[in-house]
Design a protein around this nucleic acid. Structure first.
Lengths: 248, 248
DNA sequence: GGGTATTTGTGCGTATGTATT
DNA sequence: TAATACATACGCACAAATACC
């Protein structure tokens, strides 16, 4: 919200131009800088943030490089439009149906899979013995050719043997679970946090270093409450917001 | 999860020591570095991240300053334990009751208040005319003496005239609304995102520059669906996680 | 207690990046 | 574009505290 009077911090490990670039990104997100409109002139921004015009230019150059702004000599610097996807999250969260209307095409790509012993956290979530085999799927959610999520999912290996093949074939968790006789499931106990993206997420989600990811840790259960799936999903905060609807 | 092989990036606006400090924080969060245990020696970390030992020392110094680590000459560097608050979020979200059991004391401090004309976003959310007066409250949620949230809240100035006095007195939104005849309310349409904390949030939440805040934008409504409150809350991601419970 | 290896703490010279004027 | 000041990062060396045999 409020466009507070700058106060950029010095010698804190983040260069001034990077801080100002982040400020501009924030300004775009909060509506201070409208999309498809011109940014204030460099001298004005320099004044506002209390730095030299050269520093503002460095920030703008970085954002042009990242595809957020377009600078035109003699005319000004313009905000390119890029609306964030709104990803619904609730008891009936489904990847594909959740993004209907916002995108024309979406699917889940299986990056890799493996079988491993369940650690304490996963065993408790799935209600199985610690150390028993679980299948781990590394996936990326894609919508209209853009990466919108990166997830790590665990299934009980005994009950869902071969689910990695189903995922690779269908590109859908819901469709894959159907092959194991599960026609409906609910989301239970989602925990939400945020952190800087790690190297793996940076690559998979095509992000710049320092980018933030929203993290959800969730358990999906059958209608009678039996846990079937444990997942940690990462969403690029600059491209996705999570929407909690009251009635799903 | 996966402890991938470093890949610290250079000349991207964020200093190496800051990036490595973030890595270590992530390592603690993901369990790679256990709490109350020793970190690997500086030389090992330097090797792992591909930087000079001095650079690792800068990162550690920052985290010691932030109260995350404790370094002892000749012994090692240790991870201090600090559990995150789990903030429940759902239809019946209440600040105080939500943190019961996790804290012994909590209240909301009113930092400032003002009356202003509603912009489009706020007017739509509250279902009032654009430009009509709204009361804005700037508040900080505190639990056991620690700042856990920073919120900006808007009310229709006509209907809730004087609510800032009630807030200052009671330290509770729920109690203040009672004075206006609202004994119960529900949360409607929460939108969730994350970003770097701005200067204001850094100060109010006692965070270090570069810290991440979870942001919720929510509308509270009466039982019959009438909007009464529009709020943007920021939670320090390093101290708070948001928990979505299925049945509230 | 002694000796040695390990680990954090300190100093300094140099090169490069950042920010201002 | 140039000059200047400061922050960042590296490399090497050594001191101080601790751990281990």
């Amino acid at each position: 919200m409020s466009a507070l009077a700058s106060s950029i911090e010095r010698r804190n490990g983040v260069s001034l131009w990077r801080q100002i670039a982040d400020r501009i990104l924030q300004g775009i997100a909060s509506g201070d800088f409208a999309e498809n409109a011109a940014l204030p002139p460099e001298v004005v921004l320099a004044e506002r943030y209390g730095v030299n015009r050269h520093t503002v230019r460095s920030a703008i150059a970085a954002l042009v490089q990242e595809g957020v702004l377009r600078a035109e000599q003699g005319r000004g610097t313009f905000v390119l439009s890029r609306k964030r996807l709104s990803y619904p999250i609730g008891q009936r969260t489904r990847f594909s149906t959740g993004l209907q209307g916002q995108t024309t095409e979406r699917h889940i790509a299986l990056l890799s899979s493996s079988t491993e012993p369940a650690n304490r956290r996963i065993a408790e979530a799935l209600g199985i013995a610690r150390g028993s085999a679980v299948i781990r799927l590394e996936t990326r959610g894609e919508a209209d050719g853009h990466a919108v999520s990166r997830a790590t999912t665990w299934f009980d290996a005994k009950r869902f043997a071969g689910i990695e093949a189903a995922m690779a074939e269908t590109g859908s968790i819901t469709a894959s679970l159907k092959r194991f006789g599960i026609n409906d499931y609910l989301r239970h106990s989602t925990v939400l946090s945020a952190r800087h993206a790690d190297a793996d997420d940076l690559a998979a989600l095509d992000l710049q270093p320092g980018a933030i990811v929203l993290v959800t840790v969730a358990v999906n259960v059958t209608l009678d409450g039996q846990p079937i799936q444990f997942a940690e999903s990462r969403f690029p905060a600059e491209r996705v917001e999570l929407r909690l609807s009251a009635n799903d």
